[in-house]
């Protein structure tokens, strides 16, 4: 890192825990999560905004960690795939992907799950079209998407206690 690299004190909550750290101004959120905090669940699949693998929630809304500067997350709450389970018990959206085989190689899965989690928080009962539209920024090379849609439907059903 060059000596003249400017840093900012970043105060932000990641997965419910407050972190205060000096971060380089040019640090991407995805590198902050993976390299500084060791949260390697968030993946990098492209050189910016194409694939959705890096999707996390910022203040509850899906966002590309690869196109977000860490320092812009000041006073914000970031949630990654590591935050979903409760002491080893899978969240409904994770259970959906597990039981409906929504993951094959699994590379797109953390981003896909976080995008789906964001979708279900704003729309707890999405139609198939709404699921397709809601996950359109996330690319999967394996599943053909059918199982992913079933996974989201299963999670939505569980969340509605049906």
């Amino acid at each position: 890192m060059p000596l003249d690299q400017h840093k900012t004190i970043l105060n932000c909550t990641v997965n419910g825990r407050e972190h205060i750290r000096a971060v380089p101004d040019n640090l991407l959120l995805v590198d902050y999560l993976r390299e500084h905090l060791g949260l390697t669940g968030t993946k990098i699949g492209c050189d910016g905004g194409e694939c959705g693998c890096c999707t996390v929630l910022v203040d509850g809304i899906a966002r590309h960690a690869c196109l977000t500067l860490a320092a812009v997350c000041e006073d914000k709450a970031v949630e990654t795939i590591e935050s979903l389970d409760t002491r080893g018990r899978l969240a409904p959206i994770q259970r959906g992907f597990h039981e409906k085989l929504g993951a094959q190689c699994g590379f797109c899965t953390p981003g896909m799950v976080m995008a789906a989690e964001g979708l279900l928080r704003t729309n707890p009962d999405p139609s198939e079209d709404e699921i397709r539209a809601g996950l359109a920024a996330n690319i999967c090379r394996c599943t053909g998407y059918v199982k992913i849609i079933e996974a989201v439907q299963a999670a939505a059903k569980e969340l509605r206690h049906e």
Partner: peptide, 12 residues
């Protein structure tokens, strides 16, 4: 780490 040029960020 992803490649990033060195810059200073301003947040007015």
């Amino acid at each position: 780490m992803e490649f990033m040029p060195n810059f200073r960020l301003h947040r007015p």
